[in-house]
Computed example of a mutant assay.
Amino acid sequence: MAAAGDGPWLDEAAGRLVRPFTVSNGRTRPSVALDLLSQVRTTGATPPGPLGPEHAQALDLCRSPVPVAEVAAHLKLPAVVTKVLLSDLVDCGALTTKPPEYQHNPTDRALLEAVLDGLRRQL
Rank of each mutant, 00 (worst) to 15 (best):
V40M: 07
T96Y: 03
A73H: 06
D88A: 07
A13N: 05
A110R: 12
C62M: 08
S87M: 08
M1I: 10
K83H: 09
V40D: 11
A73D: 10
D6V: 05
V115S: 04
R27T: 03
V71R: 05
P8I: 14
V80D: 14
E113Y: 13
F21V: 02
G118D: 15
D11T: 00
V68E: 03
S24M: 03
P99R: 06
L51W: 00
S64L: 10
R19I: 03
V115G: 01
A45W: 06
D6L: 13
D6H: 06
V81P: 07
P20I: 00
P47E: 02
T42D: 08
A110G: 06
L116M: 11
D91S: 15
A3W: 10
D108E: 13
D88V: 02
V81D: 07
L34T: 00
S64V: 12
T22N: 05
A73K: 10
D35F: 05
L10G: 00
V32G: 00
L95H: 11
A94C: 08
C62R: 03
P47Q: 03
P65H: 13
A94N: 12
A58C: 11
D6F: 00
P20D: 04
P53I: 01
P8C: 02
L111M: 11
L34M: 00
V66T: 15
V32D: 00
V81N: 05
K83N: 05
T28G: 01
V84F: 03
L123S: 10
N25Y: 07
Q122N: 09
V90I: 15
N25W: 02
E113W: 14
A33H: 11
P100C: 11
L51G: 07
L95Y: 12
E12C: 09
S87T: 10
G49R: 03
V23P: 04
L119D: 05
V71N: 07
Q103M: 13
A2L: 09
V90K: 03
F21D: 01
H55G: 12
L111N: 02
V23R: 01
L95N: 11
D88R: 14
W9C: 07
R109L: 14
L77C: 05
E54Q: 14
G52A: 04
L17V: 07
S87A: 15
P65N: 09
L37M: 09
P30D: 01
A72V: 01
V23T: 01
G44Q: 02
L37S: 03
T97Q: 13
Q122H: 12
A114I: 02
G7L: 09
G118L: 10
C92E: 10
K76L: 14
V68Q: 04
L34G: 01
A79C: 04
A56L: 08
D6W: 01
E54D: 11
A114L: 13
T97N: 09
D108R: 11
E101L: 15
K76P: 04
A73T: 10
V40Q: 11
S24W: 02
A33E: 11
K76T: 12
E70G: 03
R120S: 10
G93W: 08
A94G: 14
R41E: 12
T107S: 12
L59V: 14
N25Q: 10
S24I: 01
Y102N: 13
A33D: 09
R27E: 08
K83P: 10
D91I: 07
R27L: 15
T28P: 02
K98V: 14
R63D: 04
R63M: 05
P48N: 04
